[in-house]
Nucleic acid binder design. Structure first.
Lengths: 235, 235
DNA sequence: CGGAGCGGTGAAGAACCTGTGAAGGAGCCG
DNA sequence: CGGCTCCTTCACAGGTTCTTCACCGCTCCG
C-alpha cells in the first residue's frame, strides 16, 4: 500500500535521505524545508502522513503540529533533536502519533512510518460513520437507518462508505470509482449514478429530494454532513 | 497483546489524546463522544475494555456503567472530574474496575489500562463464546447447540471459533483462511464455502435460512450476534 | 427564454456470487 | 494394506448484482 507522505525537514541532506528511504518503500513523497510550507502543503494535499522535524525556520515544528491538529487529523511523526521527556510528552500532547529523537536510524523511521500507517488505516476501517440517522459500519458491513438494518449491495456499500468517510466532501464519479472499487476499474462513470439512485430508494425518506445523498451539479455526489442535515430541517 | 478499547469521552481533544496514548501502546481504539453511542458501540463490539468519562451528554457515564454492567461484563475504567469519595465509591459500586480523577497523567491511564487488562484477561482465559443457543468452547474444543454436543471437524471448529470470537463482524474468505488456518495456507478460498455448508447442516435448525452462519454477499461470512438473532425473531 | 449539458430512470443482457453434489486424494489407525 | 474420515477442488445451477444504453426532464448560463 503506497502512501502519500509529506516530509518537512530543513536540513537538505537529511531531507534527501528520508525521501530516498521512503520512496524505496514505495511511498510517494513531497519535501518542504520550513514550517510555513509544511502547513501550506499539508492543507493543500492532505497527505496520508507528515514526517515533521521539530526545529525548523519560520514556523517551529511544534507549532506546525498544533496548527494542523486544530484543523484536521493528519498523522504526524515528529523528529526531535532534544530528547528530554518533557519535549516528548509535549509532542504527543500536541498530537504527534509517534516521534523519533535524533540521531536516528533511517530504517527505524521507515518502520515507524509503517506502524503509524497501519494504525491510522485500521482506525479508519474500525470507526462507525454516522450522519443524522444513518450509520455505516465497515466492520460488520452493515448500514442502518434509525437503527433499522438496510440491505445494500456490495457496490452500494462501497460507495456509501467512501462518501461517509468524508461527510460533506464532494466526490467526482471518477473519484468514487477509484476509491470504492480500486484504481484499475474500467467502467463507465455514469454507473455511479445508478448505484446512487438505488441507494436513495433505500435510505432516503423521499428519494426525490434527498437528505443524505446530495448531487453536486457538474461535479458528482456528496453525503450531507451533520450541519447540512440539521440545516435542512429548519431552512 | 493488543486490546480493542472503546473510549467514551465528550471532549474531542481529551479523546484524541487518550486515543493516541493507547494506540502507541499498540491497542486498537474506537472513540465515541456521548453516552448513547458508548452503549451502542459497547454492545455491538464487546471491546476488551471501556474507558469511560463520567460527565457526558445524552447519557451520563454512571448510567452507561450501570446499563453495561447489567447486560455483560465489559471491564470499565472511569474518568471523573469530581473527586469526592462519594462519586468514587458510587463508580466502584456500579461496577467500574478502576477509576481516575481529572486531571490525570495520560501515562497513569496507560498503566491502569495495562493492569485492568492483565486482570481481566486471566479471568477471560478459556472464555466460552455464546451466541443464542450456540456455545463454542475453545478450551474443551467443543460445540454445543442448546446444550447438546455437536460433532464438528477440526476445520469446521477453527472457522466457527474465528467467527465466534467477533460475532457480527464480516470476514472475507481469505481472512477466515488466514485466521483459522495460518498465513501460509494456500488453498482455494471457496473451500470455506464447503465447510460453512457442512457446519450449517450441523448447527442450523433450517440450513436454507441460516440463523447463525450468515452469508455477506460479495464479502464472505459472519456469525450473527445477539442483536441480529433477536432482531430476526421479531422483524 | 432557449440551448447545451447534466443528472434521473427503466430495462435488459452480461457478469458475478453462492449453494451444492460429486470425486479425488491425503492422512490416520487398526 | 484396507477402510475410514476429512480436506480440497471442480463444475454447474440458480439467483443476484453490475453495467450499459437510451431517453427524458431538469439545471445552468448567456
Amino acid at each position: 500500500m503506497p502512501a502519500r507522505i509529506l516530509v518537512a525537514e530543513d536540513d537538505l541532506k537529511q531531507a534527501e535521505l528520508i525521501r530516498r528511504y521512503l520512496e524505496r518503500e514505495g511511498h510517494l513523497t513531497v519535501v518542504v524545508h520550513d514550517g510555513r510550507a509544511a502547513i501550506d502543503e499539508a492543507r493543500r494535499r492532505s497527505p496520508d502522513l507528515l514526517v515533521l522535524d521539530v526545529m525548523m525556520p519560520k514556523v517551529d515544528g511544534l507549532d506546525v503540529c498544533r496548527v494542523l491538529r486544530a484543523d484536521g487529523e493528519v498523522p504526524i511523526i515528529m523528529l526531535t533533536a532534544r530528547s528530554t521527556e518533557d519535549d516528548l510528552l509535549l509532542g504527543l500532547d500536541l498530537g504527534a502519533d509517534d516521534y523519533l529523537t535524533k540521531p536516528y536510524n533511517p530504517r527505524e523511521l521507515v518502520a515507524r512510518v509503517r506502524t503509524v500507517l497501519r494504525r491510522t488505516r485500521s482506525r479508519a476501517e474500525g470507526q462507525v460513520y454516522r450522519v443524522g440517522e444513518l450509520e455505516i459500519d465497515p466492520i460488520r458491513h452493515e448500514v442502518r437507518l434509525a437503527g433499522r438494518l438496510v440491505e445494500v449491495t456490495p457496490a452500494e456499500f462501497k460507495i456509501l462508505a467512501c462518501l461517509a468517510a468524508s461527510p460533506g466532501r464532494a466526490f467526482s464519479r471518477q473519484q468514487l470509482l477509484e476509491h470504492a472499487f480500486g484504481f484499475d476499474h474500467y467502467v463507465f462513470d455514469r454507473t455511479i449514478d445508478v448505484h446512487v439512485m438505488n441507494l436513495r430508494k433505500k435510505i432516503e425518506p423521499s428519494p426525490g429530494t434527498p437528505a443524505y445523498l446530495k448531487t453536486v451539479y457538474g461535479v458528482g455526489y456528496k453525503l450531507a454532513d451533520a450541519t447540512t442535515v440539521v440545516a435542512s430541517d429548519a431552512p
